[in-house]
Amino acid sequence: MAGKGRGSGRGQLTFNVEAVGITRGEALPPPTLQPPPLFPNLEYKPVPLQTGEEVEYMLALKQELRGAMKTLPYFIKPAAPKKDVERYSDKYQTSGPVDNAIDWQPDWRLLPRELKIKVRKPQKDKSAVVLPKHKQRVPLDKEEIIKKLENLEKKEEEVSSEEEEENKEEEEEKEEGEEYDEEEHEEETDYIMSYFDNGEDFGGDSDDNMDEATY
């Protein structure tokens, strides 16, 4: 009962080829062989951002905060990159705090003891900025260190860091009269330098021997 289908044959084309404009022998356009686009067309665009006083104010707050925090002492800048040739003027230029001291005063009562950095004024015969730069760690005799410490303790201000933690496992560390061990060390920029320079973790060197000083 259903009426005859309207040209339902599968084997033949269902439209008049010539009517579509393809003449005999002409090839159909080749299939596209290009890879899909990296950024396909977006079907829908993002909804516009909210506007208004509140939005403007918070935007200003955000940008001010970001700017302000960069100037606060909590913003720790990496030390200056090492220059190939040391200039005399380097001594007087600072891209960050000259000393390794923290330049704001935390309440040390709230912090673990180990975090305190003692600050030492540069001694006359050496300056904190220009110190011999070694790539290798120099093993120092512990007793030498202790003697030096006792000397240095007498100075008013100090600039150095201590490497107490390596010895934590050893009892003596805790029993010492001094709170902090202090050792000679190089300007730490080396450390940071290497890290920045080759982009790799500098950890390689320091893994070897925990008992020794790090720089």
């Binding site: 396909p40 977006l42 665009k45 993002p46 909804v47 909210q50």
Partner: peptide, 16 residues
């Protein structure tokens, strides 16, 4: 609610 903040950015709708 208004449309979410996320859809006000291209990342919210991004196909890739």
């Amino acid at each position: 609610t208004q449309p979410a903040g996320l859809v006000r950015t291209p990342c919210g709708l991004c196909p890739v």
